[in-house]
Write a protein that binds this DNA or RNA. Structure first.
Length: 554
RNA sequence: UGUCCGAUGGUGUAACUGGCAACACGCCUGAUUUUGAUUCAGGAAAGUCCAGGUUCGAGCCCUGGUCGGACAACCA
């Protein structure tokens, strides 16, 4: 009997609506504006909206909120669809707010005829002036008292293209003294002689968010319209339109957006990073966009798991990026193929191993997965190990190589370090070791047990690859609290390219969809920049490293 | 000076709707280990923003504060 997982507040609402009979099934929607790439915050929203419908047997529409032709583009539409699919969700209908432009126009006319909307000739400055402030009431526009007929005619003319951008707007007639700023005669339509990615040049007036979103929800009979906290003040207006237009009463619910440590999660800021070349693009693996984490090697499973773990509530939060890393390690540990690669080579010569001899050893692809099989690894007299795996004078708890010390070479033999060679600067250039022939992996009769196991690569057989190691994009943990402009906190060392890493030859067969664990180094995946003869790997995340922590402690 | 949201270990989310605060990440110990990974066992860590009140009993209810956030784009 598994204890039932407690519900988040949205699931509670849905369950109540279902059990009370308010709804027989639910309909949600994911409503991105196609003006940027999706990020992890959107992933949270996607998992929520699609997850709810999946759990309670409803469906989810993908609806592009494309009411501002100036900033929107089909490039973004395509990336968004791609990202949602990649995350593993399937929408019922692909819809666009622009599909409803005719209907929205009729809604506007209806409001005008009910004397609940009017055409205003005020400039945007004047309208801002009329709005007042959160603590001071606004004042009526001088155009507020136009007759219904006049408004109908003017609005038609706006639609017909008689006026220039900004010359007129359509506003709701509510209450300029309202406590809620959004109820102070909000703008419904504005004039933009702009080409729309879907409707082309058909329209020169476009509805504002508030006059498009809720109505689109109603048209689609969305039962639960879920958005982020900053839309709370819009809810009153959302419901005002439902009442006055007498349309399907979708209900809006708000949850706290995702914030993560060491990064920013706003499209505006991410766009800035892209435009100002602080990153190579929207899918630069250091970005928190979905396309970037995908390129970096994160799996959809791990992101869904992450979204599940962070929960949903109404209080502001700052999630430790370490939790995301935990989720991806957890998944990658189960599926990644193990490979060996040496980043900072130190040559070792096995002095008692025959020159010219090559042995083919076998290494399991994944100890976590019995069905993953094994691959062949060449072993020979000259090998590379990591520089950091040798110390001339080793502390007692150093289980790696040092003069006289023994280690196991993974999948191979136990070796002992006999001597080392130094260059003029005192740097270690070469180790001379002897191997224990009867310690061969899988048939070890030596009876020797060692504390350390090293990864290695045969010098003669190694292939070289490029690797890109990523660190956090920002140095500040909480960018919302950090002083000054967010870009002042960019981490200059967030990308480290290692142009030449020595890898076991099996890696030549690497495939883009595959995930790899470079033993003791982390999880990696092939980057699309790879070409024949030059493979590039991204480090998704490091392995947990207790030893590094130990060393730090001193 | 207004209105609206919110407040539980370091972080995030719970608490059967009033019954002596749980789970996850992180942290610390130890065991296992041919990855100092994984796995396993254990531990530290909040008395629930504050002050009153109701109650046999309050993180949950009431009152008043405090703190944090949102709201004044022809953006969404």
């Amino acid at each position: 009997m598994i204890e039932e997982k407690s519900l988040n507040f949205l699931e509670e609402i849905v369950e109540n609506d279902l059990s009370s009979g308010k709804h027989k099934s639910i309909v949600t929607r994911f409503p991105p504006e196609p003006n940027g790439y999706l990020h992890m915050g959107h992933a949270k929203s996607i998992c929520l909206n699609f997850g709810l419908a999946l759990k309670y047997g409803g469906y989810t529409n993908l609806r592009f909120d494309d009411t501002n032709p100036i900033t929107e583009d089909t490039e973004y539409v395509e990336s968004i669809k791609n990202d949602v699919k990649w995350l593993g969700f399937q929408w019922k209908n692909e819809l666009y707010a622009s599909d409803y432009f005719n209907q929205l126009y009729e809604f506007a006319v209806k409001l005008i005829k009910k004397d609940l909307a009017y055409v205003d000739d005020s400039t945007s400055e004047e309208i801002a002036e009329q709005k007042g402030t959160p603590t001071q009431p606004g004042k009526n526009s001088p155009f507020r008292s136009r007759t219904v007929d006049e408004n109908v005619k003017l609005f038609e003319e706006m639609k017909a293209g008689k006026y220039k951008d900004g010359e007129k707007v359509l506003r709701a007639k509510i209450d300029m003294g309202h406590q809620n700023m959004h109820m102070r005669d909000p703008i419904l339509y504005r004039i933009k002689h702009a080409h729309h990615h879907r409707t082309g040049d058909k329209w020169c007036i476009y509805p504002m968010y508030d006059f498009a979103h809720g109505q689109s929800d109603a048209i689609e009979k969305i039962t639960h319209s879920i958005c982020t906290l900053e839309f709370i003040p819009h809810r009153e207006l959302y419901e005002w339109f439902i009442e006055k237009l007498e349309i399907y009463p979708s209900r809006q619910y708000e949850f706290a957006r995702l914030n993560m440590t060491y990064t920013v999660m706003s499209k505006r800021k991410l766009l800035q990073l892209v435009n100002e070349n602080h990153v190579s693009g929207w899918d630069d693996p250091r970005m928190p966009t979905i396309s970037a984490v995908r390129r970096r090697g994160y799996t959809p499973e791990s992101i869904r798991e992450f979204c599940d773990k962070i929960g949903v509530a109404k209080r502001e939060n700052l999630i430790d990026v370490g939790l995301l890393e935990f989720c991806v390690r957890e998944h990658l540990n189960k599926i990644a193929l193990r490979r060996m690669a040496v980043f900072d080579p130190l040559k070792i010569v096995i002095t008692n191993y025959p020159e010219g001899k090559t042995e083919i050893l076998s290494g399991e692809n994944n100890p976590e997965d019995e069905n993953s099989g094994s691959r062949e690894i060449p072993f020979s007299r000259e090998l590379y190990i990591e520089q950091e795996d040798f110390m001339e004078v080793a502390p007692k708890k150093f289980f790696r190589l040092a003069p006289g010390q023994m280690v196991r070479l993974k999948y191979a033999y136990i070796i002992r370090c006999d001597s080392f060679v130094k260059d003029a600067n005192g740097g270690i250039t070469e180790l001379h070791c002897t191997y224990i022939p009867e310690s061969r992996s899988g048939s070890d009769t030596s009876g020797i047990s060692v504390k350390g196991t090293l990864h290695w690569v045969s010098a003669q057989h190694a292939v070289t690859i490029e690797t890109r190691l990523y660190d956090r994009l920002f140095k500040a943990e909480d960018l919302s609290q950090a002083e000054g402009d967010f870009k002042e906190h960019i981490n200059p060392d967030s990308l480290l390219v290692v142009p030449k890493v020595y890898a076991e030859p099996e890696l030549l067969k690497a495939k883009g969809e595959e995930r790899y664990q470079f033993l003791r180094k982390g999880y990696f995946c092939l980057d699309p920049d790879s070409k024949d003869g030059k493979l590039v790997f991204n480090r998704t995340v490091t392995l947990k490293d207790m030893w590094a922590k130990e060393v730090k402690k001193g």
